[in-house]
Structure formats: structure tokens, C-alpha cells
Write a protein that binds this DNA or RNA. Structure first.
Lengths: 140, 140
DNA sequence: CAACATGTGTAGCCGTGGCTACAATTGCAG
DNA sequence: CTGCAATTGTAGCCACGGCTACACATGTTG
């Protein structure tokens, strides 16, 4: 049975995860939008994507710049740094695995899409591995 | 394929979930502590449990009081309301299902404990149902 | 080139969940 | 009953992710 310290650690871990969830969602979105017909990712694209005001996007992008995940110039597009691209690729893969896993489990695709969005940030490498294994086994 | 509005909705849903995650964690903890040897749940118990200062607990408890989930008096214990007990029971059951599911999947118990903590708040009833079914099937 | 729509930036506000520092209460020891 | 330790409350600060309102750039379009 877990000690009190371990329980506290678990919660602290959960909180720390929250802090980076937004970053993960944003770099993923930037990558997708830049790879789409749009060709580049602008603040307005992100605002629409997350259904928030452009101000919220601006503030979050500023934080991502501080963290070295994206680059941007005044009135210019938002571009991923090398670190941002790495993170985006990792998140995309993880997201797809979680989604595929839920679908393989028998969850309706529309529900799986919502749940994957929330779950993906909390899946450890070990659990993700089990998810992937399960998907392979059930890939008919 | 999902529309832009659906993607935005998914994200809004995820954010709204965040707002209630803390409430869920706290009512769950209050129920557990009150049911333990301690007999009652005090601010100090919660502070230790989540490894945060007592001030943070006080503020969150105040919010839970506003939301009708707990009751308390100055310098007194924190008690669940009927609504709080209902929510706690629901969360406890869901938490256990998620944990049992991860373990059944093959995730090490210590890892499963951490992941369940993060995942439980994002599991829809439909997905939870699939988790439970899976656990039953693999309960030899 | 001027004007106007669109897109960004800036200022300033809110609630949540963190914190430290200090004040007040409680409760138990002496 | 007095006094001290532990607990709880209060004040005030921070970062994050929301917002509205207003200012400033950009880029078509006439």
C-alpha cells in the first residue's frame, strides 16, 4: 500500500502535468495548422481552434516562447522551434495511440475523441506501451 | 471527420473538466479521511494529503462550501453534504475501476496508481463501462 | 494613396490554485 | 487558570488561462 508521501507525490505530479497540458495542446495544434492548407499558423487560427479569444492565445504563445517551444514576431506567424516540433510529434503519436486504443476497446469514435483529448496528457510511457500492445493485438 | 466546432467543443469540455477535478479530488479525500481512524477530516489532514499549504486547502474548501459539497465551521472539521457524499462515492468507484483496469491491462501497480489519478477525471461513462467490462473479463 | 476590414498587441479585470507571513483560536499541559 | 503548541484564519503576493475594450499594423480595395 502506498505511503502518504507517495500519495502526495502522485497529486503533485498530476498538478505539474496540468501546467504542460496547454503547451502540449498548443504545439500539437500549431503543427497541424502549419501542415494544413493554411501553410502557416497564426494567432487567429489557434483562437478558432480552441474557441478562445485571440488575447488568450497571445498570452499562451508568449509563455511558449519563454519556454522555447515556439518562435514568433509581432504580427507574424507562430512557428515551432526544434524542441516544439519534437514535443508536437511525441504528443501526436501519443494522442493517436490513445484514440486508437479507446476505439479498439469498443468506445464509440465520437466519445473516444473527447476522452482521448483529456486522457492523453496523463498516460505514462508504460501505460502507453500497454495501450499500443492492445491495439496491435486487436488490429484484426 | 469532426468539424471545427466539434474540436473546439472537445477542448472546452476538457477545460471545464479541469475546474471540477479539484472538487472531485477533495471530496474523495474528505470521505476517505473521515472514514479512517482520524474519524473526522480537518484542514491539516487535507494539506498533508495533497502536500499543499493549509491556506490553499482553506481556499479550496471555501469554494466547495459555495458549491454545496461540504460544510464547515470556523476551526471545525470539514464534512461532506449529501451532494458531496454522492459525488465522493461516484468518484471513488470510478477511480477504482480505472485503477483495476490499468492493472488488468498489465500496467505495474505503482504506475497504474499515478496514471489513474490523472486519467479518472477524463473518463466518460461510456469509456468507464468498457473499462469495467474489460476488468470483468480478465478477472479470471 | 486613402480608407476600411481584418488581424495583433496592450491594458486591465476575474477566478483558481499556489505561496509566505502574521493573527487568532483551541485545546492540552502544567 | 495560565500558557504554550498546534491548528486555522487572514492579508497579500504570484502565474495561469479566461475575458472585454481599445489601440495599432497589415493588406486589400477602391
Amino acid at each position: 500500500m502506498p505511503t502518504k508521501k507517495q500519495i502526495a507525490d502522485r497529486h503533485r505530479r498530476t498538478r505539474r502535468d496540468h501546467a504542460s497540458e496547454t503547451a502540449e495542446d498548443y504545439v500539437e495544434a500549431v503543427a497541424e495548422i502549419a501542415a494544413s492548407e493554411a501553410g502557416e499558423c497564426r494567432v487567429a487560427n489557434l483562437a478558432k481552434r480552441f474557441d478562445v479569444s485571440h488575447v488568450t492565445v497571445t498570452k499562451i504563445v508568449a509563455r511558449l516562447v519563454r519556454e522555447g517551444l515556439v518562435e514568433t514576431e509581432p504580427y507574424g506567424p507562430v512557428q515551432l522551434t526544434a524542441a516544439g516540433r519534437r514535443l508536437a510529434a511525441k504528443c501526436r503519436e501519443r494522442h493517436e495511440t490513445v484514440y486508437a486504443f479507446l476505439v479498439a476497446l469498443g468506445v464509440p469514435t465520437d466519445i473516444a475523441a473527447v476522452d482521448a483529448e483529456g486522457i492523453e496528457h496523463h498516460v505514462s510511457p508504460q501505460t502507453l506501451e500497454q495501450f499500443a500492445t492492445f491495439v496491435e493485438k486487436h488490429a484484426e
